[in-house]
Computed example of a mutant assay.
Amino acid sequence: MSYAIFATRPGDSSVLVRQDRDPPAPAPGQVLIRHAAIGVNFIDVYFRQGLYPWPVSENLVLGSEGSGVVEALGDGVTGFSIGQRVAYTLPNGSYATHRAVPAAHVIALPDDIDDATAAAVMLKGLTAHYLLHHSHPVQADDTVLFHAAAGGVGLIAGQWLAAKGVRAIGTAGGPEKCALARANGFADCIDYRTEDFVARIRELTGGKGVQAVYDSVGADTIMGSLDCLATFGTLVSFGQSSGAPDQVRVSHLARASLRMTRPSLFHHSANRAWLEQAASDLFAMIRRGAIKVQIGATWPLDQAAAAHDALTGRATTGCIVLIP
Rank of each mutant, 00 (worst) to 15 (best):
M1D: 12
M1H: 10
F6S: 00
F6N: 01
A7D: 08
R9L: 06
G11K: 06
D12T: 13
S14V: 04
R21E: 15
D22Y: 01
P24A: 04
A25I: 13
G29E: 05
V31D: 00
A37I: 13
F42Q: 12
F47Y: 14
Y52K: 08
P53L: 12
P53N: 12
P55D: 02
P55E: 04
S57A: 14
L62W: 01
E65P: 09
G68F: 02
V70I: 15
D75L: 06
D75W: 00
G76I: 01
T78V: 07
G79F: 05
G83L: 08
Y88S: 04
L90H: 02
L90S: 02
S94G: 12
Y95V: 07
Y95E: 12
R99L: 11
A103K: 14
D111R: 14
T117F: 12
M122A: 15
Y130G: 04
L131Q: 05
H133F: 10
H134P: 02
H134T: 08
S135W: 01
H136N: 01
P137G: 06
A140Y: 00
D141K: 14
A149K: 10
A150P: 02
A150N: 01
G152F: 10
A157H: 14
A162P: 03
K164P: 00
K164S: 06
V166S: 03
V166G: 02
I169T: 06
T171I: 01
A172F: 10
G173F: 03
G174R: 08
G174D: 03
A181F: 09
R182C: 10
N184H: 15
A187R: 02
D191P: 09
Y192N: 04
F197N: 08
A199Q: 15
R200C: 11
R202W: 00
K208C: 03
Y214D: 04
Y214H: 01
T221R: 09
G224A: 14
C228N: 08
F232V: 03
T234P: 03
V236K: 13
G239Y: 03
S242C: 05
V248W: 10
S257E: 07
L258Q: 00
F266S: 00
H267K: 12
H267W: 09
H268G: 01
N271G: 04
N271K: 05
R272I: 07
Q277P: 00
A278V: 08
A279T: 11
D281T: 14
M285H: 12
A290M: 15
I291E: 09
V293T: 13
V293W: 09
G296T: 08
D302R: 10
A304H: 05
A305S: 15
L311G: 06
G313A: 01
T316R: 05
I320E: 14
L322M: 11
